[in-house]
Design a protein around this nucleic acid. Structure first.
Length: 172
DNA sequence: ACGATGATGAAC
DNA sequence: TTCATCATCGTA
């Protein structure tokens, strides 16, 4: 079984998409080489009231893609040296996305994008076509023991938002 | 614990 | 046009 995840998968509540992405595969094609990576760590950024989300202060040129349709890549540059990879979720006009924090063998968002060669060239590209970067269901059963924790690196948003268990990690 | 390093967005 | 901030990481 090998199925490219389509818009209906992403066009659901962000927390549902985030949890279900664990155990799915992020597939990267570079120079004709296709490499699958099983997703092990993600975070949800959910709606205009989420103080930790880029969308909290409304639509800007950078975050506009979060307000668009689901299943689109959102890649941005942070701390002057790291690229962050997200995929948009939920209906149009509702700003939400899932941050990809780790895959099997590569932990950490900055490291992940560096290892897979992900830059803003991929920003705003659809994640639903088998081209450059996409997601697949390869039939791996999601672990029943997915761990849920607060999100990392968002203390500035205050305890209410940083402690919400919007982070999903494969049980290992 | 802290510096690197630059895009971003808000203020002026 | 400035300026503080930042969904981080490596070194100490």
């Amino acid at each position: 079984m090998r199925r490219v995840l389509q818009r209906p998968f992403f066009d659901r509540p962000t927390l549902v998409v985030a949890e279900e992405l664990i155990g799915k595969f992020l597939v990267r094609e570079r120079d004709g080489v296709v490499t699958p990576y099983m997703l092990t760590e993600v975070e949800a950024y959910d709606g205009p009231k989420d103080k930790a989300s880029h969308a909290f202060r409304g639509r800007t040129p950078r975050n506009a893609v979060m307000f668009g349709p689901a299943g689109v890549l959102y890649v941005y540059f942070c701390y002057g040296m790291h690229h962050m990879l997200n995929v948009t979720t939920g209906p149009e006009e509702y700003p939400a996305a899932v941050l990809i924090r780790g895959v099997q063998g590569v932990v950490g968002r900055g490291r992940l994008t560096k290892a897979l060669g992900i830059t803003r060239e991929l920003d705003r590209l659809p994640a639903t076509k088998a081209n450059a970067l996409w997601f697949e269901d390869r039939g791996v059963m999601p672990s029943r023991a997915i761990r849920r924790t607060g999100r990392i690196g968002v203390a500035y948003a205050g305890p209410l938002w940083s402690k919400r268990r919007y982070r999903f990690v494969w049980k290992d």
